[in-house]
Amino acid sequence: MQLRMVLSLMAAALLLLMSIGCSSPGDEATGESGSNWRYAHEEFEGDVQDVFAHKFKEYIEQNSNHTLQIFRFGELGESDDIMEQTQQGILEFVNQSPGFTGSLIPEAQIFFIPYLLPAEEEYIVDFFKTSVAINEMFPELYAEQGLELLSMYPEGEMVVTADEPVRSPQDFRGKNIRIMTNPLLSETYRAFGATPTPLPWGEVYGALQTNIIQGQENPIFWIQSGGLYEVSPNLIFTGHGWFTTAMMANQDFYQSLPPEDQQLIQDAADYAFNYITDYIPGLGDRMLEKILDSSDEVTVTRLTEEERQPFMDSATQVENRFIDMTGERGKLLLEQFKADLEAVVGD
Results as ranks from 00 to 15, higher is better:
Met1Gly: 14
Arg4Pro: 05
Val6Ser: 10
Leu7Glu: 13
Ala11His: 06
Ala13Trp: 15
Met18Asn: 04
Ile20Gln: 15
Ile20Gly: 15
Gly21Tyr: 12
Gly21Phe: 06
Cys22Asp: 12
Asp27Trp: 10
Thr30Trp: 03
Ser33Gln: 10
Gly34Arg: 06
Asn36Gly: 03
Tyr39Asn: 08
His41Lys: 14
Glu45His: 10
Gly46Lys: 08
His54Tyr: 15
Glu58Tyr: 05
Tyr59Glu: 05
Tyr59Arg: 05
Tyr59Asn: 05
Gln62Pro: 02
Ser64Thr: 07
Asn65His: 10
Gln69Cys: 08
Gln69Arg: 12
Phe71Ile: 11
Phe73Thr: 02
Phe73Trp: 09
Phe73Ser: 11
Gly74Pro: 11
Glu75Val: 10
Glu78Gly: 14
Asp80Ala: 13
Met83Trp: 08
Gln85Ala: 15
Gln88Met: 14
Asn95Pro: 00
Asn95Trp: 00
Ser97Cys: 02
Gly102Val: 04
Ser103Arg: 15
Gln109Glu: 13
Phe111Glu: 03
Phe112Thr: 05
Glu120Val: 06
Glu120Cys: 04
Ile124Glu: 12
Ile124Asn: 06
Ile124Ser: 00
Phe127Pro: 02
Phe127Trp: 04
Ser131Glu: 02
Ser131Asp: 03
Ile134Asp: 07
Asn135Ser: 10
Phe138Gln: 10
Pro139Gly: 01
Gly146Ala: 04
Leu149Thr: 11
Leu150Tyr: 08
Ser151Asp: 09
Ser151Trp: 03
Met152Pro: 01
Glu157Asn: 14
Met158Leu: 15
Val160Cys: 12
Val160Ser: 11
Arg167Val: 12
Ser168Phe: 04
Pro169Ile: 05
Gln170Ile: 11
Asp171Pro: 03
Arg173Asn: 03
Arg178Trp: 13
Ile179Gln: 07
Ile179His: 03
Asn182Gly: 02
Pro183Phe: 04
Leu184Met: 00
Leu184Lys: 00
Tyr189Cys: 03
Ala191Gly: 13
Ala194Thr: 06
Pro196Lys: 04
Pro196Ser: 10
Pro198Gly: 11
Leu199Ile: 03
Pro200Tyr: 12
Trp201Val: 06
Glu203Arg: 10
Leu208Asn: 07
Asn211Gly: 00
Ile212Ser: 12
Gly215Thr: 02
Gly215Cys: 08
Gln216Asp: 13
Gln216Met: 05
Ile223Asp: 01
Gly226Asp: 03
Gly227Lys: 00
Tyr229His: 13
Glu230Gly: 03
Glu230Lys: 15
Val231Gly: 06
Ser232Ile: 10
Pro233Met: 08
Phe237Arg: 00
Tyr254Gly: 01
Gln255Ser: 04
Pro258Trp: 04
Ala269Gly: 12
Ala272Ile: 07
Ala272Lys: 08
Phe273Lys: 10
Phe273Asp: 14
Asn274Phe: 08
Tyr275Arg: 06
Tyr275Gly: 02
Tyr279Phe: 15
Leu283Ala: 12
Glu289Asp: 15
Glu289Tyr: 09
Lys290Met: 14
Ile291Arg: 07
Asp293Gln: 14
Asp296Met: 13
Thr299Asn: 08
Thr301Glu: 08
Thr304Val: 02
Arg308Cys: 02
Gln309Ser: 12
Ser314Ala: 14
Thr316His: 12
Thr316Val: 06
Glu319Cys: 00
Phe322Thr: 01
Ile323Leu: 09
Lys331Val: 00
Leu332His: 11
Leu333Met: 08
Val345Pro: 01
